[in-house]
């Protein structure tokens, strides 16, 4: 803190001079110390934005199954996810940056989850929580169960466990924050049913073949047990 910077001659640093007499050092912070006397930082806008994004994330209040109970514990008193700058659950996907997918996804819910994901503004990030969102988990053999969230939406972080402890979820979220701060994001996965969005692209045989399978009246999600990993 400021006392370390003081030299023996009694000359004041700019910072101390600006703070004036009689003011204690409670406004000082590690950041201020790091910056020294200059109140300016020079950085790239991109890096700055990434740092901002990673440091303040709005989570979507989204519960599916067992994992959502542990997720609620992560938000609540003991574990308090807010300490890591990501504890503001938003009820509307349009206000959220991060979606934690906490639980088994079944065929009936998958299109709904995809729609919720689509409603989130860019840039958006996905933490898939629990074994079910990695692979279908203990329910993998079920006739109705999607074998992992990756089948539906692109995931940035997988947190395995059944369910993962709150500590594990926090670790996953902090890792996501690190990735965001470093400017890394998940590759965008385009699913066949999204191809209609690229209607202005040049005609392509494959695109055409896939687009033909889509009933335009009826946005359809195919679920195939046999070809699942």
């Amino acid at each position: 803190m400021s006392s370390h910077n003081q030299d023996t001659t009694g000359a004041q640093t700019t910072q101390e001079a600006r703070m004036g007499e009689g003011v204690d050092n409670r406004f000082n912070s590690k950041l201020r110390e790091a910056f020294g006397s200059s109140p300016f930082i020079l950085t790239k806008f991109d890096s700055f934005m990434n740092w901002v994004r990673g440091s303040s994330m709005f989570m979507l209040q989204f519960g599916i199954a067992c994992c959502s109970i542990e997720m609620m514990h992560t938000y609540a008193v003991k574990h308090d996810l807010d300490r890591f700058g990501s504890g503001v659950p938003r009820a509307s996907p349009r206000q959220a940056d991060v979606i934690i997918v906490p639980g088994t996804i079944v065929s009936k819910f998958a299109p709904r989850m995809k729609r919720v994901y689509d409603q989130m503004p860019e840039p958006k990030f996905v933490v898939s929580m629990g074994s079910c969102t990695c692979s279908g988990g203990p329910f993998q053999e079920g006739y109705n169960v999607i074998k992992g969230a990756e089948e539906v939406i692109p995931c940035d972080i997988h947190v395995p466990g059944c369910p993962p402890r709150p500590e594990a979820l926090i670790y996953g979220i902090v890792k996501l924050q690190e990735r965001i701060a470093n400017g890394e994001t998940a590759p965008v996965t385009v699913k066949p049913y999204e191809l209609e969005q690229f209607g202005d692209l040049e005609e392509d045989e494959l695109v055409q073949h896939l687009a033909d399978q889509i009933d335009e009246e009826d946005l359809v999600m195919r679920y195939n047990w046999a070809e699942s990993p």
């Binding site: 065929s107 009936k108 006739y143 946005l219 359809v220 195919r222």
Partner: peptide, 25 residues
């Protein structure tokens, strides 16, 4: 199960490999 599901999964000759289509409408 979704309205469009084909077959009854707990009946005896249900084919779990069969492709199923789930609409969003």
């Amino acid at each position: 199960l979704p309205e469009t599901w084909q077959g009854h999964p707990l009946s005896q000759n249900y084919d779990q490999e069969r492709q199923q289509v789930v609409p969003l409408t």
